[in-house]
Each structure stands twice: as C-alpha cells, then as structure tokens.
Design a protein around this nucleic acid. Structure first.
Lengths: 332, 332
DNA sequence: ATTTATAATGAAAGTGTTTTCATTATAGGG
DNA sequence: CCCTATAATGAAAACACTTTCATTATAAAT
C-alpha cells in the first residue's frame, strides 16, 4: 500500500488554489459570497487533492457535531433494534450520526452514560431507558442538550417526549376481556422491571380492582429459558389463565410451556404479548399483541429532536397509539 | 430551570486554581509530573466548577476520538443486534464510543458511508457489511483507519479480519446428511444476497456436485411473510425436502408453511437455520442451526481493533467456529 | 551552603475548522 | 470615466484542548 494519504487540510487546499482559508471554507459550506470562477477553481483542487473537511474541527468551531446520542438499555432487544432501525434511517436522511450509549440496566452504568453524553458533545440525545431518572435527565438538560425522552414524563426546555399508550390500552383490553372471557388474569412482572412496565402493571391491577376481579402476578426473569422452566412448574398446578407478558419471547415461553404441559392455547391458556415484534406471527399459535410501529417511533424521535435544534418543534409531546391485534393466542 | 451551566473550559479551571492550562491538562490526564498539592488543588476546583473536558477538543489535539465506527447493513437483524451487544459491552470496558453507519443494503449508501467514516475521524472501524467491497475497504485503509473486517477476505496494514466457518461447516453437515438422510436438499438463495451467503451457497453446491447428488435452489425474498407465502405455494407440489435457510425467520417461514400445508417436520420437511439466534428454541419445532456466539464475535472484534491501535495485535485473522446443533427441525 | 540533577510548572505553538470584520475588487449609475 | 454601493476576499481570532520546550522550584549530594 503506497497510496497512503495523509489527511489533507483546508490550508493545503487554500495554498494549492491560491486563495485564503476563508474562501475555501466558504465553498465547502456553500456560502453564496464567492464568485463562480473561484468556486470552480477551489472545487477542482478539492477534488484533485481529495480533501475532506474534518468534522472534528468543524464541530469545535461551530459547536455542532451532527452527532446524536442514543441511550438504551441494550442493543439486543428486538423492539429496540426496531427503533434503532427507524432512527438510523431518519438520521441518515437528516445527516446525523448516531452514537450509542448503553446502560446495561445498571444504575451505575447509567450515571457513567450521563457523563459520557455530556462530554461527547452530541447535538442532542434520545433517551429510551428506564435507568435514567428525572435527576439524570435534568442534569443532561442543564447542559443544554436537547432531549427526546421516550416513556418518561419529564418536562423542560428543549425537551420533547414520546409516550406509548400501553397503560390505557391494557386497561381497555382487560375491560373487554371481562365482558367475554372468564379466565383469571396474570401479570408477568419482571424482576428487573422498568417504569413503563410498572405503570402497565399498575394499570392492570387498577382495572381488576375497579371491576372487583381477582388477579395474579408472577415475578419472572427476563429470559426465555428461565420463564419456560418456571412455567413448566406453574402449569403443574395452574391449568388455565390469561397471561400478560411484556415481550414476545416471554409470551412464547408461556405458550411453549403450556403446550408442553398438555394444555391448549388459547382454550386453556391465553397469552398476550404487550410489545409485539415481528415474531408474533412466527411463533405458533400466533401471538395476540399490542401493535406499535417501533420503527416509526424511532424515526419520529429523530425528527422531533431535529426540530428541537431549530426551535421549530411544535408538538413537544407525542403519544403513540398501539392497537390490539388479536391472533391465535387469545380467544377474543 | 435556572441552573443552566455554560460549559466551563480548562481555561477557567486554570485561572480559578491559579495554575496554567498545561498543569490542569496534566491533572486531567493523570500525568505524574504534578505535585500532590497542586493536583489536589486543581481537582478541587474541577469538582467545584463541574468542569468536564471537551472530548471534541481533546480529539482535535490528540488525533484520537475514542470513537469507533460500526458499519452494518441495518440494526434490525437479530444476529447483528447480538453482535452489537457484544461490541457495546467491550467498548464500554475499553472506553470507546460506538457510532453507527448503516448501508441499508444499498451500494449508493455504502459509498456515502465510506465518506462519512473517513470524515468522522473514528479511531477505527468494524465492518460487517457485504455492501462494502475490496475497493471501499482499501479506500478506508488508505486513510490509515484501522479496520476489523468480518467475513470479507481483505488483507493489509492495520487490518484484521474475522471469519465464520459456515462454508466448511455446511459442507460437513451436508456430507453427514448424505450418509443417513435421503431427502433432496434445497438452498434458499436470497434475492439480495451477500458475499457470505453466496460462499455458503457455493459450498452447498460443491458438496452436491462432488457427491454426484441432485439439489435445488429457491430464490426468495428476505422476509418472513413473503417466504411463508412462497412456500405455501411450493408445498402444494413439493412434499418433502431438506431446506437450508440463512436466518431463523426464514427457516420458521418454511416450517410454518410446511405444517400449515399438512406436512410433518422433520419427517417430511427438514429445515436448517444457518445463522441461529435465540429464536431457534422458541420456534416449534425447535430449529436445528449452526451455532456461533455472535456476542463473542462482537466483543472480540472490538478487542482486535483495540489491538490494532497499539500494534500489539498478534492474531490478524481469527476464525470463529460454529457448531451444528441438532434440534427438532431435522432428523439427524 | 553550594552545586547538580531532577521534578514541577508555564508559555506558546499546534490541532483544522468557522466567522467576524476590515479590505479590496466589481458592477451599476450618473 | 468616476463615484458609490455591493459583492468577493483575506487576516486573524476563536473553538478547547495537548504537548514541546524552556524555565523555575525542589531535593539530593557534596
């Protein structure tokens, strides 16, 4: 490899085309105050030298990095991957780079992440992580970092929020079920549960209390394998029920355990997956779920953040509506 | 919100603690050439003022960003999410940030991505994307960007590679099958297929030719829904076969279509998923697959890249061995 | 106490841009 | 053809750090 290029700087371009740094900078940034003739000349030498402006230096000079931070618990959840997908698309469209900050569901890591987001000079951040509480978010906000916060009711300057209507929708689903169904409902509480799940659980319990109905809660681990094992036990005694699971994989664990225990789905055991991903229709019987277009959420989050940059953001708060999709894992 | 902080700079810290910029810089960077007394003093005012060094300015001055670029076709594939997971963990351990570059399986986007990686001043990049060809990778390399390239045989300075042994393993699986099984084998070729898949396909065909066996190839779209629909058609005439699918979701489409067509899995239809993710055991019957620890791949990729930074990288090339895991979707 | 070696500090240049402001060139109007 | 308004250009400061090199302070050795 002998064609190793040392990064060519704006200075070299200026010299090579016999103009000043300022002029080169102007043509890079499409500033109109430059003659067509010199523009051509400069552009030609830019092409010839293979000059590419350093985004680092630009960022330092303009205080804009075109980087946005994405704070998530992990890249490994399918529903988060869906969101990321929407984000990367929209970000590409708008010329932003995405840099990832994962908290690993640990409060300690979350604090580190807050520091890193601050020192990273991102232009803004999207936060979809229950590990960050109001204090953390306010800290970020106090550094004037525009924020889009998902499923966490924080308010403030240059801070937009997106919320899912799962709580409301779960209540509706339950109330509908009370009219037609008769099984006892169980909520699958995660050991390491987040605010959203807790709010959904509260909603679940409220609906039951209000209707004077009996309900159950199982506290499980966020793992298919463990949940499957747990339910193989549970189904030795419990022979029917309507189970609300947070994720596809957990719902699938219940379904598979039920079937492997000789129970019928949905006749004996009904299962609802709250956050449905594409696996709802791959798993058999197909999973009834609350459908929400996560990709759209991701893309919308980037759009809103972009709006915060320019202050042209009108809707500071967006609620995404989920729809109940009945498939084969529930009767109604 | 009245506690809006304007970013405090190293200069203010210097003035406030009565020392020079250089000294403050030294304490930030744990340079030993500073008295315990002044260090304490400076650290105290850093804490008091809430000073955080600007990574941007540091990057410009040191020519190190602590950012590494991740080039992938999309964040939305489960196996890529798995890898990302390993990368984020290892990156956090080593103090790197990950910035995402997605090509969306488009050559045009891939060219853009190459430009962006160059101008982004990442310290290095990990490339797991068939859209980038040798030329693209050499271009990146020519800008002296250390690279870890996954499943793409490129060689060069500061360029390490990771390869999966799928080709070899598929050949073995097929040869084993010839000994015991009797079904005709079909390869599921993706319309928009990448180099890795093509190499696997070649391996599949070679094994058949060598053994003088008959085989089939179906060209499908990379979509569960479409593949399911296609196979509902196919199974009207084809009543048995051994199908090799690239992903879980595609394999599941074949299985579900087979079952919905009244065929038995694995008695009539056998299915092997090449890139197995956690869904192999959720789908029923459970999918036989080639298992590879993608998370480990991700973490190893970061480790190797980090090694390239310091030249202490010995193994420039790493082959990951997959293991055939027989589950319920195949007979052997 | 004096010299010498060494450790701690500071001044200033360097990193690659943008941007303001002053200056020079150009075009239009008389 | 000259004057003026405006457009094009350049010089230099700013962005927030690191790092080299020179200088000063400190400790060890005599």
């Amino acid at each position: 490899m002998n064609n190793m290029k040392d990064r060519v700087t704006i200075y070299e371009v200026a010299v090579a085309s016999g103009v000043s740094l300022a002029t080169v900078s102007r043509v890079i940034n499409n500033n109109s105050n430059v003659t067509e003739k010199t523009r051509k000349k400069v552009e030609e030498t830019i092409a010839r030298l293979g000059y590419k402006p350093s985004r680092l230096a630009q960022a330092l000079a303009t205080n804009k990095t075109t980087n946005i931070g994405i704070v998530i618990p992990s890249a490994n959840y399918v529903y988060i991957a869906n969101m990321l997908n929407g984000m990367t698309d929209e970000a590409k469209l708008r010329g932003y780079q995405l840099t990832l900050f994962v908290t690993n569901k640990s409060k300690e890591d979350a604090l580190q992440v807050v520091e890193k987001v601050i020192t990273s000079h991102v232009d803004g951040a999207i936060i979809f992580d229950d590990e960050l509480d109001h204090e953390d978010i306010n800290k970020l906000a106090s550094y004037k970092i525009p924020l889009v916060v998902i499923n966490n009711s924080v308010k403030g300057e240059r801070l937009a929020s997106i919320n899912f209507d799962y709580e409301k929708k779960i209540k509706e689903v339950i109330q509908q079920y009370f009219k037609k169904g008769s099984k006892k409902m169980y909520f699958l509480h995660l050991h390491h549960s987040g605010r959203l799940l807790e709010r959904i659980e509260k909603s679940f319990i409220d609906a039951h209390i209000k209707a004077g109905k009996n309900y159950g809660v199982f506290s499980i681990e966020d793992s298919y394998r463990q949940t499957y094992a747990d339910f193989m036990e549970i189904f030795k005694s419990t022979k029917s029920g309507y189970f609300l699971a947070y994720r596809d994989s957990l719902a699938a664990a219940v379904i598979n355990a039920a079937i492997d225990s000789g129970l019928r789905v949905p006749q004996d055991v009904e299962v609802l997956s709250i956050i449905g991903t594409k696996y709802v229709s791959i798993i058999r019987p197909q999973l009834s779920s609350l459908h929400l277009d996560l990709k759209e959420v991701g893309s919308k989050a980037v759009t809103m953040l972009s709006g915060l940059f320019t202050d042209e953001q009108k809707e500071k708060n967006l609620e995404f509506e989920s729809t109940f999709v009945k498939r084969a894992s529930t009767l109604f």
